[in-house]
Amino acid sequence: MSEKKPLLEISNIDTYYGVIHILQQVNLRVDEGELVCLLGGNACGKSTTLKTILGMVKPKVGKIMFAGEDVTHQNTPARVKLGMAVVPENRRLFGPMTVLENLKIGAYVRGEAAQEDLERVYDLFPKLKERSSQLAGTLSGGEQQMVAVGRALMSHPRLILMDEPSMGLAPKLVEQSFEMIANLHSQGVSMLIVEQNANMALSVADRGYVLQTGRIVLEGEAKELAGHEELRRAYLGR
């Protein structure tokens, strides 16, 4: 990694829910083309971090830079337009709409969905082409995950935010899901993955952060973290 260009940089973020202090002085960086994972147990603020990055929750203090712009005060659609895309927790597909419609919604900020974007997603997930007219809610968990990722790709994102890609999937599908993530990463897509399954996440990531009760307690190269004694005891169950 000769030249590191930060794509997303959040500095000294403090987020509150009412009076409850959730994120405390969180600093996080994702470089161009990098795959970063954010680890942590339950209720430590992982999803809140993601929501703050995406603009669903506004931080009280701090600054969010994305693609060279200060987006701290921009709303979610504006940030999506700049190149963020999200694969939400539990996928949050639009159940009674078809797979095709779900994919097209991903391209909403770019106008009408272009055919070549669709083809790109279909190349990645051939199964979705067969299922394009099926209602998204009737797909299996793994297929829904494909739609959710495909939907995110439709907007030509510069950064994909993934919230718990392993949630609600069978062990086999978790593996597939991470294979897919590694595959996307190898094609140069930058990603920030929020995950409880530390083992899996560290196996594909470049770097990682560990969040504990709203504070970043550890950060470093994924390989380093995977070998970190404290982390192993806390999250890897060994």
């Binding site: 995406l54 659609p77 949050r92 009674p96 709409m97 919604i105 900020v109 969905a113 907007s155």
Partner: peptide
């Protein structure tokens, strides 16, 4: 896209917003 977006609001406004 307008019609599709309307229906996404009906289904899940929060998810719709995070799609832009």
């Amino acid at each position: 896209r307008i019609g599709r977006a309307w229906r996404t609001i009906r289904e899940d406004a929060l998810a719709a917003e995070s799609m832009g």
